[in-house]
Amino acid sequence: MLELIKAIRETAQKLLQEKEVELVLGFEEGTLPLRNTPCFIRQPEEAQRLVWGYGCENNLANYLRNRSEKVGIIAKGCDSRAILELIKQNQISREKVVIIGIPCQGMIDRKKVNRLLAGRELIETQINADKIILKGRDFVEDISIDNLLHDSCLTCQHPNPVLFDIMLGEPASVKYSDNNIASFETKTHEEKRAYLFQELSRCIRCYACRQACPMCFCEECFADCSTPQWLSKSSLNVHDNLFFQAVRIIHVAGRCVDCGACDRACPMGIDLRTLTHKMVKDVQELFGYTAGVNLDEKPPLAAPVNPTTLTHS
């Protein structure tokens, strides 16, 4: 990991020194264990702030739109897929971005860590091969990293960047299965409805999921409209919550790269990824399309489809 961090810093410094880019988007150390935060590097000497590790969970593609300068970006697999889709959707220009590809071994889910620690304060962490040591004032926990990865990482089929200008590090292998939606699909319509109502009853409509998603790029969201008014502004109810999430998911159909950013951003711990993962699977089955893997392939909603192939599930 240290060699990879060194390579990231040297690459960013060189790009800025040679005026290849005006800005590098990456990660720096956060203030808490297992937390790296997005950072914006504009001077070559600032490249020493850049880090890489199991806490670099944000999808940095979310910061690319509406920028006039040429940008270098540290991109793991899901970031690169989001960048590819943004290019296809004419939201960013391919010529204005330099993609520094980084193989991804998965990102640690701090919510899983918090559940494991059950209120105990985490002070320090240490990575040892495929294990992580969690340390506090009166405890030491040694646990497999695989047990703490985000669910989106556990089903990731593209851990390596699909689009890049510079590639650093050794390629990561695909080692996880993609079956976490099966239990939801076996439910009856009534059971699905009951499950979604139960989950979305906790929604406070903070729109963190929308803000975290690089594919939610409407200039004005329907949820913010007052004429017509789609959602109640004065009160929260589960029907409006379900309507908001359903429309949000439909709006990113064919663009969503299943990065899990919406799920991670939710402060209420709502299972949003079941909705996104189901939509991604349906798009694959109905249109034979996987978002963010082929720059030359037309988005599914821009291509003709045979209606006889459509099924209801």
Rank of each mutant, 00 (worst) to 15 (best):
E121K: 15
C153S: 04
C266K: 03
C78K: 11
L301A: 06
K111N: 09
P44N: 02
M1L: 14
L122E: 05
I74T: 11
S68Q: 14
F184A: 06
D224F: 15
H239A: 12
W230P: 06
A291T: 05
L86H: 00
R248N: 14
Q17K: 15
L301D: 10
Q48A: 00
G26F: 01
E199C: 04
A253S: 12
S234W: 14
F197G: 07
L25H: 06
G119M: 04
N160P: 09
L236F: 10
H150C: 05
A61S: 07
A223R: 14
R264K: 05
W230T: 12
P161A: 00
E190N: 04
A194I: 12
S313K: 14
R248Y: 13
L50M: 01
G72Y: 01
L200E: 07
D146A: 09
L32S: 13
E95I: 02
L286E: 13
L32T: 15
G254N: 12
L149G: 06
R115Y: 13
L231I: 13
L301H: 02
I127S: 08
N241Q: 06
I73K: 04
P159L: 06
P103N: 08
R273F: 14
C266E: 04
N160A: 03
S144L: 13
N294W: 11
Q229M: 13
G292E: 02
I74W: 01
S235M: 10
R35F: 05
G53M: 04
T188Y: 09
Q229N: 12
Y176V: 04
L86F: 01
V174P: 10
T11E: 02
P228R: 01
E95Q: 00
Q89S: 12
D109Y: 01
L64T: 11
V98T: 14
I270S: 02
L275K: 11
A47Q: 05
A61C: 06
S173C: 15
R9C: 05
Q284F: 00
G136C: 09
P171G: 06
L275H: 09
Q284L: 03
S152N: 05
D282S: 12
I102L: 10
V247K: 10
